[in-house]
Nucleic acid binder design. Structure first.
Lengths: 246, 246
DNA sequence: CGAGAGATTGACCCTCTTCAATTTTTGTGG
DNA sequence: CCACAAAAATTGAAGAGGGTCAATCTCTCG
């Protein structure tokens, strides 16, 4: 789930002078590097690569050249079901590491696309690999990040395999909310950066079903929605929707 | 997908004298270790731990103590949806690494249960971690294995999110077939070690739907099924079922 | 050989999809 | 800044895919 807390207060590190809110530096800090290691790591980061809305960060099948962490913005990753069918595998927000789908083969399994104008920081994968070999703490943190992705995917399999439409939508909103909270952003009132179509694709539903689920949750006063603005009015009730069968 | 080819011919390594078909040794060989490293790795393996049918290898929530690789038998891993609902996240066969769900937190997210009498080889996670720090090739191979799991999970999300019942069942059979083939086992005629209920849970379907899908695929002569014996009569046709929408 | 779990098949029903019409929002150029 | 077109979202009605319930059959395995 790659939840990395980035708050302005908790960032006395001079490394951030270069690029405030840099997710890569924050990620490195999580790895508990020494000052020396941290400097070595920081040197290799390529900061502030901007991406326009709808621009590809990478395409499925492409060789893995760099790992990225979103600095600002929002993206989606999708696998291609080689018959026009595709499946969004995740929505990515600031602090999330991008590129783990390519570790297995060296080629990306997913395409990753910006859902609005965004910026990312990156590191050449060759550099990254060398650093993980040289710095055990970094290696361990990277393995942990991969492990988090595996755990997240298993949760997603539970959602897709065992939940009803409204439960999926409620779980989706709560998940977004928690991730916003972990970044110090408002957790009860936020803007959905993706279309209903995207949400539906991600949750294994049609866009109409997503829309109806939103409307129904709003009828029950659990949320309020106006277009892409969401307010979570009763998180506990949403939790109940997720947990109680039918 | 952890496909590790283990054939009797391709195993001149004296390491195997101790435990023929040991998946851990095979996994270590894939990592391209030096003779010295390989010996160090081999020393830490705990061979041939038997598991009775339905016995837990580990339970969700338990602390990660060892990683395991199935030597012989078949298992299933399942996450618990804390309201009686659960979701099988994978079926595991000889050569598959078990325990990656716990890398993130140090505690297992899944329970893993033997589907028939099985045996596994294991390694204490503390030993394993130390070895990955000392042996870069092992570290890289482990990261690759984690990456494979992520790629597999994304494929599963595509299946659960975008495929119809019969497509899922066809994809399931083809996947099993390929994995058997990768192990040098018959790929067109094998036995399903799990119940229809398990298959349905894994694929996000009911057991009745799985049964009907099998019957329908058999009607079309794509497969033959008698209970748990499956014969794949026309793999190409099955592929078409998976790929062509509806 | 018998009991109980597992599998198959049928009938009905419900959730979600599909199709369609309308409204709202977004984005672009005059 | 407004106007217009295009995209996105909402809502309704009808239909289908798959779930649910139930009866029967078939395998294990003790």
């Amino acid at each position: 789930m790659n939840t990395i807390r980035i708050t302005k207060d908790a960032r006395p590190d001079p490394l951030f002078d270069d690029c405030p809110d840099c997710g890569f530096i924050a990620w490195g800090l999580c790895a508990q590097l020494t000052v020396r290691e941290s400097a070595e790591f920081g040197k290799r980061i390529e900061h502030r690569r901007p991406r326009k809305n709808l621009e590809h960060l990478h395409r499925a099948g492409a060789v893995l050249t760099s790992l990225y962490i979103i600095r600002d913005g929002f993206m989606k990753s999708m696998v291609d079901g080689n018959n026009g069918r595709d499946q969004i595998t995740g929505f990515l927000m600031p602090g999330d590491l991008i590129g783990m789908d390519a570790i297995a083969t060296g080629r990306h399994q997913c395409s990753t696309i910006a859902l609005k104008d965004s910026s990312v920081c990156g590191m050449a994968f060759a550099d990254f690999e060398q650093l993980t070999r040289d710095i055990p703490a970094l290696q361990q943190h990277f393995q942990q990040t991969l492990g988090c992705e595996i755990a997240r995917d298993h949760g997603m399999m539970l959602l897709l395999g065992a939940m009803r439409a409204e439960e999926r939508v409620a779980a989706f909103l709560l998940n977004l909310s928690r991730r916003f909270a972990a970044r110090g952003l408002p957790e009860h009132h936020f803007c959905l950066p993706m279309t209903r179509q995207d949400i539906g694709n991600y949750l294994g539903l049609t866009l109409e079903t997503v829309s109806r689920a939103f409307s129904h949750l709003a009828d029950q006063q659990h949320i309020a929605i106006h277009g892409r603005d969401v307010e979570i009015r009763n998180a506990e009730a949403l939790n109940k929707v997720v947990r109680s069968n039918h």
